[in-house]
Amino acid sequence: MIYCCEEHVELALDIVVDEFETFPVLTKVDVDNLSTTCEYCQNIAMYIVANE
């Protein structure tokens, strides 16, 4: 599971496809969890990219 901002969502999708060889699941982060930061920068995470 990768938390990412709007800018890095394509990178996160590519990484999930490369690592797990499966179609990624893109989920918008809940408003309650807006303190979570992107794994690639310090921006607020807007999406969760997962392999399930």
Rank of each mutant, 00 (worst) to 15 (best):
residue 8 H to L: 12
residue 17 V to Q: 12
residue 38 C to E: 00
residue 35 S to T: 05
residue 16 V to K: 10
residue 15 I to G: 06
residue 34 L to N: 02
residue 2 I to F: 06
residue 10 E to W: 11
residue 52 E to M: 01
residue 16 V to D: 07
residue 4 C to G: 05
residue 42 Q to N: 05
residue 11 L to T: 06
residue 16 V to I: 15
residue 8 H to P: 14
residue 10 E to H: 11
residue 9 V to W: 01
residue 24 P to W: 08
residue 18 D to L: 09
residue 44 I to V: 14
residue 17 V to M: 11
residue 6 E to T: 05
residue 46 M to E: 05
residue 38 C to I: 01
residue 37 T to R: 09
residue 12 A to L: 10
residue 11 L to C: 06
residue 40 Y to S: 07
residue 22 T to M: 13
residue 52 E to P: 07
residue 14 D to I: 03
residue 11 L to K: 11
residue 42 Q to L: 06
residue 19 E to I: 13
residue 14 D to S: 05
residue 10 E to P: 08
residue 3 Y to F: 13
residue 49 V to G: 01
residue 41 C to F: 12
residue 48 I to N: 06
residue 14 D to P: 01
residue 23 F to K: 15
residue 40 Y to K: 07
residue 27 T to M: 00
residue 6 E to K: 10
residue 9 V to L: 06
residue 50 A to C: 15
residue 18 D to E: 08
residue 23 F to W: 13
residue 6 E to F: 07
residue 40 Y to I: 07
residue 7 E to S: 11
residue 24 P to M: 05
residue 33 N to S: 03
residue 46 M to G: 03
residue 10 E to R: 11
residue 28 K to F: 03
residue 13 L to Q: 14
residue 11 L to R: 09
residue 16 V to F: 14
residue 49 V to Y: 06
residue 44 I to N: 02
residue 36 T to C: 06
residue 20 F to D: 13
residue 39 E to D: 09
residue 15 I to P: 10
residue 12 A to Q: 07
residue 6 E to S: 04
residue 35 S to W: 06
residue 46 M to T: 08
residue 50 A to D: 14
residue 21 E to Y: 15
residue 33 N to V: 00
residue 13 L to S: 13
residue 12 A to C: 12
residue 17 V to I: 13
residue 13 L to V: 15
residue 48 I to W: 06
residue 43 N to Q: 12
residue 16 V to M: 13
residue 47 Y to D: 01
residue 37 T to H: 06
residue 5 C to V: 13
residue 24 P to V: 07
residue 1 M to D: 00
residue 26 L to N: 00
residue 50 A to M: 12
residue 46 M to F: 07
residue 41 C to T: 10
residue 33 N to P: 02
residue 10 E to C: 08
residue 47 Y to S: 00
residue 42 Q to A: 03
residue 16 V to Y: 14
residue 32 D to N: 10
residue 23 F to I: 15
residue 11 L to G: 02
residue 20 F to R: 15
residue 1 M to K: 01
residue 44 I to H: 07
residue 29 V to E: 04
residue 13 L to W: 12
residue 30 D to N: 11
residue 35 S to D: 02
residue 1 M to F: 00
residue 4 C to A: 09
residue 27 T to A: 01
residue 50 A to T: 14
residue 32 D to K: 13
residue 20 F to H: 15
residue 42 Q to D: 04
residue 5 C to S: 10
residue 44 I to F: 10
residue 45 A to N: 08
residue 11 L to V: 09
residue 45 A to L: 09
residue 33 N to G: 03
residue 23 F to T: 15
residue 16 V to P: 12
residue 22 T to W: 14
residue 33 N to Q: 01
residue 28 K to L: 00
residue 22 T to K: 14
residue 16 V to C: 10
residue 38 C to H: 05
residue 49 V to I: 05
residue 50 A to P: 09
residue 19 E to M: 15
residue 22 T to F: 12
residue 15 I to T: 12
residue 16 V to S: 11
residue 5 C to D: 12
residue 39 E to L: 07
residue 39 E to A: 04
residue 27 T to V: 05
residue 41 C to L: 10
residue 32 D to L: 11
residue 14 D to F: 04
residue 27 T to R: 03
residue 40 Y to T: 04
residue 51 N to T: 06
residue 35 S to Q: 01
residue 10 E to S: 09
residue 13 L to A: 11
residue 19 E to Y: 15
residue 1 M to V: 02
residue 26 L to E: 01
residue 44 I to Q: 09
residue 9 V to P: 00
residue 23 F to D: 12
